[in-house]
Amino acid sequence: MTSTRIDARFAALAAEGRPALVTFVTAGDPDPDTSLALVKALPAAGADVIELGMPFSDPMADGPAIQAAGLRALKAGQTLAKTLALVRAFREGDDTTPLVLMGYYNPIYNYGVERFVAEAKESGVDGLIVVDLPPEEDEELCLPALRGGLNFVRLATPTTDEKRLPAVLANTSGFVYYVSVNGITGTAAPDTARVAEAVGRIKRHTALPVAVGFGVRTAEQAAAIGENADGVVVGSAIVAAIAGSLDAEDRATERTLSAVTSLVTALARGVREARRDAAA
């Protein structure tokens, strides 16, 4: 297994003794130029890992905020090829922040799996999260991605029981993404105690870092989850901040960039305080 920027970043943060802040934005939302500016601004605002959504017309696992972001991006002409171009442009100025593409399988299948894996690697992508590819379908993309030097980050959920967990973890690399609630992105808030228990359960089965997402919105939640998790994922809240900054025609305004960076800065403070509070 090739070591990626993801492995390096989680190792460095473990040494530092704090969880990673993983931030999600949808590629091309609200337009290609603004989207690139947003992605470029994330590391300085405190994001440790970037998840970049590949918009899809039928995002079955996403709540209203990320659905709307995907539709805005598609309306502004986003395609998978443009998403890879965005990653290339980002990499011109940043060779260390890990970047994970997240989305659904059909646009990738349509693009061609081998071509996609090769171009993603060459563009500077480190890992993939593909919501509708469970371990039962590993031969589709997971195994080609691993062979191509990309991490394949799998979702584990509250319904993933002890019996199933080893299968879920078998070909997972980079980190494990624990989905904190049964449901879609950005709706229910996770129960911190139950999440901590689940993270402990996963860690008994794997040495990989465990990041927790779905429903985390505030710095306080991020701090609480980050006490036990190796990473905290925030998506819908950031995407909602973008939406809230747009004009009536869904165009970016001068507030768009600062709406995102100020939220990410607050979240970054949250994860940095996670274990300081716990130790105190």
Binding site: A61, Y105, L133, E136, R154, L155, T157, T159, T160, R164
Partner: peptide
């Protein structure tokens, strides 16, 4: 595995898989 030749399969989120 639920395949009719190339078609079919189980392309769902992990939450639904069990």
């Amino acid at each position: 595995q639920g395949h009719f030749g190339l078609y079919g399969g189980r392309f769902v989120a992990e939450t639904l898989m069990p």
